[in-house]
Structures are given as C-alpha cells and as structure tokens.
Design a protein around this nucleic acid. Structure first.
Lengths: 211, 211
DNA sequence: TTATAATTGAGAATTAATTAACAATTTAAG
DNA sequence: CTTAAATTGTTAATTAATTCTCAATTATAA
C-alpha cells in the first residue's frame, strides 16, 4: 500500500484512544462525539478528529463515532487484531513481570519462550513456560518463527544479543536495556528506557520547586 | 526564577545526551564538538546546539564542549545532582525489578520503603528494605518526607492510591499502572505505560510488512 | 416532511519544532 | 604575531504539529 506516512506523534496517541474506547465499550457506550471524548481525555476535539482522519475518518457527520467500530479500527491499525509471538530474554524480575502481565495476552501477544544465562534458572517456570539456556535461543526463534524479542538483560549483553536476533529473523525488539541498539531497518525497535523516564520526573520536580 | 519554559521535547532528549556524555567521560574523552556528538548520537548538530542553548549554552566557539562540565550541567538541570527518596507501592515482580535496579541508586534515587497489600509478603525483604502493609504507607511517607512514589499496582488500586499519596505530601508519582492519574498540579506524574509501548511496536511491525 | 441542532472532515491559519546559515570567537599552526 | 581552520551561539528559514473554521451532512424534534 502506498499510504502516506503517518507521524509517530499520531501513532503514539493511538494506544491511549484505544484504552479510553475500551473503557467506554465496557460501560456500554455506543456512540461518542469528538467533543465528548475531548472532555474525557483532555485533548482537543480538533486533534482527535485530525488524528482519526489520518486513516480515512471513522465518524459520521451529525452522529459522531461508533465506539465499537472505532475500537476495532484502531486495533487493526495497531496490528493487535492478530497474534504476535514473543520470547523474553532475561528471566529476572523485569522479565517475569512482563511475562506475567496478562493484559498482553489479552491483546494477542503470546509468550512462547524465556531464556537466561543463569544455570540456576534453567528449568524453572514462568507461567507455563520453561526457562532455557540462552544458547538455545537462536534455534528456538528460528524454529518457532518468533516475531518479537523482549530484551530484559544488562546493556553490555543487549548489543550482541540484538545482532544474534537480527540473524535469526526476528521482526522486532522490545528493548529494556539502557542502550541504543543498532539493527538493520527491517527490524523494528521500541525502547523502554526507564531511567530516562525517571530523570524526566526528577526534572519536573525540580522545575516545580524553582517556580 | 522566571526562566522561559523549556519544551518537553527538549527535556525528553536530555537523558540521552546525559547517557552518551557519561560514556564519553568513562572513555576519558575531554572535549567534543556538536558535530562529533551528532555523528555518534545520530541527531543533527544543529539540534544539539539548539537544545543546550535553551539553558544558556555550555560550549565555547572554536573549542566545542567540555565533556565533564556538560555532564555536570545536565545532571543539575535534571536534578540528579541531589538525592531523591522513593517508596515502591506494589512489591510484585515489577516493583522488585525497579527496587533492584542499581543504576537508580547511582543517580541519587534512594529506595526507602516498600508496601504491598499481600500479607504473605509482609516482612520479606527487597534489597535491605522490609515490605510493609500498605496501610502503613501514609504514616511512613509523611514521617520520612518521601518525595517519589513508584506505583506498581493494578490500575483499579492506582487511582485511590494516588489520592492518598497526594494527601500525605508526595512530590511525584512514577506511575506504571495503566491508567491516567488525576492529582493536583503540585504533584508531578510520569507515566510508564508499557502496553502503549508494545502497541507502538506492533504498529511498526505491521507498517513494515505492508510496505 | 421540514427545520434546527449536532457533528464530522477538510482546508486554512497558527504555533511549535527542527534545520540551515553565518557572524563572532577561539584554537592552533606557521 | 598572523592566519587559517574549527566551532559555537544566534537568527532566519523551513518543516511539522496543532488548532481553528466552516461547508456538508446527518440526526432529531416539531
């Protein structure tokens, strides 16, 4: 498809729309106007309409948006109408936290394997998945055509690991290591740099105190 | 101070500069030009200079930037030259992962307390800190003048907890619950919405495949 | 059936962010 | 000491993002 490129600013807002629409759906709300949604979400109605229009417009003049339809359309755009297989590399607390987060399962992310380099963890289970030696990762990923690798390992190990992952055909890396990975551009990387986030918080504490 | 407001776009880039400068410092690099930094970080030299200029400019024409000085200045801007006390509310895997992340300690974030509502966890230790019943949180936060609360609890509990925290004088909330908190604006909130991040990744996988 | 109110989609206007350009300054070499 | 090269800080230009406006459309009430 020769769609025009959608800005990451817009993409970054979609999950939040999705979350609010899910809440509305649960409450049994059938339709909503950009203005009502604006009031709830504290963003401008104009931005809401502009954002949805990037994808062709899901509303109807004089009516607003159908909550269920809009919800489904956004889930398609985000690609969470399909299943995605994932493995977790690094079976520490963070890896376990992520594996155990049932919300991901609900969104179609299927936890298929866990790897670590600590022999004490081999054979232990996270949910119903056995932790394996990290040497077995490549074969496992290839054989099971895993799409996403979650990197919850120290930054020194993350860079060579990303290389290996690239070689065995991974599609995407969800990177929790505090380092920028360099991978070929057919591989999608999403970074979660927790310390960056904490520093922003620190900045804002500081800023407020000096005002 | 009547500083002009710095955009969050700029603030969001500071931790990354800080990280790269830390690496350079460790390597013993003493000076660096915006062009060299640009090559390493893959952002434009112009943006680097513009960003630093928001704070008055830390460089010298014909010389560039002194790595140590720049590092220290950014750490002051981010407020990580001072210590910040924090408590973790929710002693599950995610809470433990964060408590155990030694990098935070290195940046002056001091882990002072952990709370949970699961009686089985009472008295168990995370690092050298005992997990206490969540009912004791308010008293503890007041008494010890805790600045930051890390919320690693389910979203249903997060909203009332944020209210309680507001009442006992917390300065900031680092929120991992998948909900938008409403607190008075003297309290800083930084959200880490992991599922939003994963959905962005999913979008980008999708986009690449349909190109 | 008609008129009125509601509401989107789309284009225009505005504001914000990024990049380019270059004078002023400093370093460093001859 | 003089000159050439390097490099910032700053202003201008450009691009991107957001907000405003309103014609076109639909729902709803009379």
């Amino acid at each position: 498809m020769a769609d025009k490129e959608i800005s990451q600013a817009v993409i970054g807002r979609l999950p939040r729309y999705f979350r609010y629409l899910g809440d509305l759906k649960e409450k049994g709300v059938e339709r909503i106007s950009s203005q009502e949604l604006s009031d709830i979400m504290k963003v401008t109605a104009s931005q809401i309409r502009q954002d949805f229009n990037n994808f062709g417009g899901f509303g109807q003049q004089g009516y607003g948006y159908n909550v269920n339809y809009l919800y489904d359309e956004i889930s398609k755009i985000l690609g969470i109408d399909k299943q995605h297989s994932l493995v977790i590399i690094g079976a520490g607390h963070l890896g376990k936290a992520i594996a155990g987060y049932t919300n991901f399962t609900r969104r179609g992310f299927v936890f298929k394997g866990a790897f670590d380099c600590n022999p004490e963890l081999y054979g232990t289970k996270i949910r119903d998945v056995e932790v394996r030696p990290v040497d077995e990762m490549e074969e496992f990923v290839k054989k099971n055509q895993i799409e996403i690798a979650v990197l919850t390992i120290p930054k020194e190990q993350a860079v060579p690991m990303a290389h290996k992952l690239a070689e065995c055909g991974i599609k995407a890396i969800w990177n929790f290591a505090h380092v920028d990975l360099e991978v070929p551009n057919n591989i999608q990387v999403e970074n979660v740099h927790l310390s960056d986030s904490l520093m922003k918080l620190s900045y804002n504490i500081n800023r407020y105190e000096n005002t």
